[in-house]
Simulated scan of single mutants.
Amino acid sequence: MRNTRTLTRRAVLGAVSVGAVLALAACGNSGGDSDSSGDAGSDSSASAPAGAGTTADATAGAHNAQDATFAQGMIPHHRQALEMAELAADRASSAQVKDLASRIEKAQDPEIRTMSGWLTSWGEDVPAASGGTAKSMPGMDHPAGSGMPGMMDGSDMEMLEKASGTDFDTMFLTMMIEHHKGAVDMAGTEKNKGEYEPATSMADGIITAQTAEIAEMNKLLGKS
């Protein structure tokens, strides 16, 4: 994972230095893409109520160790995505990046609450929230988090936190693409090995929504 994060930082810095963000301006009329991706994001968010039934319903549903592992890993993974998205509000220069970040928050925050409810009903530990800063984000220095695919480390987040304008836009998109790919991998494992239907349904929604957002972000970066 360390090599992946190193490559990510090199890719980000390289993208900034060559002015890759010029592609953002070229996409100024791509409102249709944003709407389409917004639909995908809402699919992911819509999956939350399906798993947010009563405690009795959650307890009665069959689940296995993979379901618990999925929730315990995806909660801190989503929390870091929210931390990244929150930075976009006053650092991003592109309206499209700000819109994407807002959709990520709206989709993933309810999923965190839903997964926390599952774990509580199963008698499993719910990952503790961090202090809310980039340096203390889950997965930065915690062994379990650092092993999750797509997670940024402390230096990645510090670099993003210090950036602004078009530099931020490029860093955000490049890092979030990697982050989304990690979430898709984790969700794929849940679909294949999970047993609790609301969890496998959420995993399917994550794959659909975040795959669409990866394509959207690549387009904003000028990639095919």
Rank of each mutant, 00 (worst) to 15 (best):
D67S: 05
A95N: 14
D67P: 12
A128P: 02
L100Q: 08
L87E: 04
I112N: 03
I112T: 06
S93C: 09
V126H: 06
G73N: 15
R113F: 01
R79P: 00
G131K: 11
T69R: 15
M137V: 03
H78L: 07
L119D: 00
T54I: 08
W118S: 01
D125Q: 14
T133Q: 05
A92C: 04
A65V: 09
A88M: 04
D67E: 11
Q108K: 10
P76I: 01
A129W: 00
P76Q: 01
Q108C: 10
A88G: 04
G51I: 13
A56N: 07
S121C: 10
N64L: 05
H63W: 01
A62S: 14
T69G: 15
G117S: 11
L87H: 05
T120L: 12
R103E: 06
M115T: 12
N64W: 11
S93N: 11
A58S: 10
P76T: 01
A107M: 15
A62H: 09
M115P: 10
H63D: 09
D57M: 08
G123Y: 09
S130I: 02
K135R: 08
M74R: 01
A129K: 12
G51H: 15
T55M: 07
M74Q: 13
Q108G: 13
S121Y: 01
L82A: 05
A95T: 04
I104Q: 03
D90Q: 11
I112M: 05
E86R: 14
A62P: 05
G73V: 07
S116V: 03
L119P: 00
S116F: 02
R103S: 12
G131H: 10
Q108L: 11
A60D: 09
K106W: 10
D67A: 01
A92P: 01
T120M: 08
M115W: 02
M115S: 03
I75S: 03
A65K: 06
R79I: 05
W118I: 00
P76E: 00
E86P: 01
D109G: 11
T69V: 03
I104R: 07
V126Q: 00
A52S: 15
T59N: 07
H78I: 02
K135Y: 06
I112D: 09
P110Q: 13
A58Q: 13
E124A: 11
D67W: 02
D67M: 06
A85Y: 12
S116K: 11
G117R: 04
A65E: 14
P127F: 01
M84N: 05
A101E: 08
T55G: 09
G132A: 14
G51Y: 15
R91S: 09
Q96S: 13
Q108E: 13
V97N: 02
G73I: 05
A50F: 14
P110E: 13
P127N: 04
V126G: 00
A81V: 01
D57F: 06
Q108N: 08
A89V: 14
A88F: 06
A128F: 00
L87Q: 06
D109M: 08
A134N: 05
D67L: 04
R79V: 11
M84C: 10
H77T: 07
G51S: 14
T120H: 15
A88S: 13
H63F: 00
P76S: 05
H77L: 02
E124L: 02
E86A: 13
M84Q: 13
A81F: 04
